[in-house]
Computed example of a mutant assay.
Amino acid sequence: MIDIRTFMLVLGIGNIGFALLMAGYARGAASHPAMRIWAGARLVQGAAHLVGWLQPELAWSALVATGNALLMIGTALELAAYCVFLALPRWAVALLPFTALALLALYGAQALRLDAVQGMVLMSMALGLFSLAMAWLLLRPGAHGSVLQRLIGVNNLVFAVAMAVRAWHGLGHTHASLLSAAGAHHATFIAGYILMIVNGFGFLLLCKEKDDARMVQLATIDSLTGLINRHAFFDRTDSARMLARRQCSPIALMMIDIDHFKRINDCFGHATGDEALVLFAATAGTALRDHDIMGRLGGEEFALVLPATDLEGAILAAERLRMTVAAAPLPTSAGAYAMTISVGVVVIDAHEHINAALARADHALYAAKTGGRNRVSVGVGQLKVVCG
């Protein structure tokens, strides 16, 4: 026979332990904001289980309602943590009224002096709905979550089913009680224990997973334009170059510079200069293929790699890009400004180092700028692509 009171003590201590663990993690790292809400939820749930563990010893009827209210509030906070983690808009509009209604029903049942079985059914239904909402948020088709997120969602779904079984058992067995040895109650506390372990560590890892992804993004993405930065561009270009070599496929490279960028900054201010960079990145994105690699190397200087593209195709792509940018006016304090670009184009040799190819493309870019700007120039020293 499973000692349900011992389960309640374990759940209480375990949840408080998780709360302290998560609070320590949130304090010592740039953690996700949802982590603090989750830690608060675990602390409240732990307190609720400890109150339930103490109730038979103290025999205070008020402890039952207090423990149930704490458990409901803690579960609502847990649902709030998921909403914040998933960046759901206006989640409080639905959660706060439902939580208030559930608490009102709980205290209304106490005022009406409903028996323990009816109170247990009410709590099971409320907690089951909360858990079902968590499962839906994590498993819904548009969530596109990780395997870890879906595992936590399944865990919440299992707990919701256990709560439904517990409520059904209470409705069908009028002499059931919270501390009875009925199988439904055993299943409930076992599911609660599994929920605590899986979701406790799972949510911590889920937040760390998102924090790590954010750090990777900060390390590889230019914050202003949204393009990859210089370091990431070199890494991806080298991988694309090696793939082109294995497939005996051509690969082209462009160096791109916004014409008279200093004049834009001097005449309209640096804020407009930033807007010019953002406009160029967004406009260029409409003229590129999904597998093209574009990065900001610094200032107004950009580079673009076109896999599976020969010189003729690269020249056509460069001209298309140049005309697309010229057709996208830049708003300034003095009206629309016709922004133009200069482009240097080369084809990377199969055995050529990326720095050498960039140097040739940079020479071609210089020729385009000295030749009058707003034009495309082909690099000299073009090498024949040799496979193998």
Score class of each variant (00 low, 15 high):
6 T>L: 08
7 F>G: 13
8 M>F: 14
11 L>Q: 01
15 N>E: 04
21 L>T: 15
23 A>I: 04
28 G>K: 13
29 A>F: 14
30 A>G: 15
36 R>Y: 08
37 I>Q: 02
38 W>S: 00
39 A>T: 03
45 Q>C: 11
51 V>A: 03
52 G>K: 09
59 A>M: 07
60 W>Y: 09
71 L>Q: 14
81 A>N: 12
81 A>V: 14
82 Y>S: 05
82 Y>Q: 10
83 C>N: 10
88 L>V: 15
90 R>D: 07
95 L>Y: 00
96 L>H: 11
97 P>W: 10
100 A>R: 02
102 A>I: 07
104 L>K: 04
108 G>R: 03
112 L>W: 07
113 R>A: 15
115 D>I: 00
117 V>H: 10
117 V>P: 05
121 V>W: 04
129 L>P: 09
143 A>P: 04
145 G>C: 08
146 S>Q: 05
160 A>M: 01
162 A>C: 12
166 R>L: 09
167 A>M: 07
167 A>R: 04
168 W>S: 14
173 H>G: 10
175 H>K: 10
176 A>L: 12
178 L>D: 05
188 T>S: 11
189 F>H: 06
190 I>G: 05
196 M>W: 05
201 F>V: 12
209 E>P: 14
217 Q>R: 14
220 T>P: 13
222 D>G: 05
224 L>Y: 07
225 T>D: 04
228 I>M: 10
228 I>K: 00
230 R>A: 06
232 A>P: 09
233 F>E: 05
235 D>A: 13
235 D>F: 10
237 T>L: 06
238 D>V: 14
240 A>T: 01
241 R>Y: 09
242 M>F: 13
247 Q>R: 03
250 P>S: 10
253 L>G: 01
254 M>E: 02
257 D>E: 05
260 H>S: 07
261 F>W: 01
265 N>M: 08
266 D>H: 00
270 H>P: 14
274 D>Q: 00
275 E>K: 12
275 E>D: 15
278 V>A: 09
285 G>R: 09
285 G>I: 08
286 T>W: 01
288 L>S: 02
291 H>Q: 15
297 L>R: 08
299 G>D: 04
303 A>Y: 01
305 V>F: 05
308 A>K: 06
313 G>A: 08
314 A>D: 04
316 L>D: 13
318 A>N: 03
320 R>E: 12
321 L>I: 03
322 R>K: 11
326 A>K: 12
330 L>E: 04
330 L>D: 07
335 G>T: 02
335 G>V: 00
336 A>R: 08
339 M>E: 11
342 S>I: 04
343 V>G: 02
343 V>M: 01
349 D>T: 02
351 H>N: 13
353 H>I: 14
358 L>E: 07
362 D>N: 00
366 Y>K: 07
367 A>K: 02
382 Q>A: 08
384 K>T: 14
386 V>C: 11
388 G>Y: 06
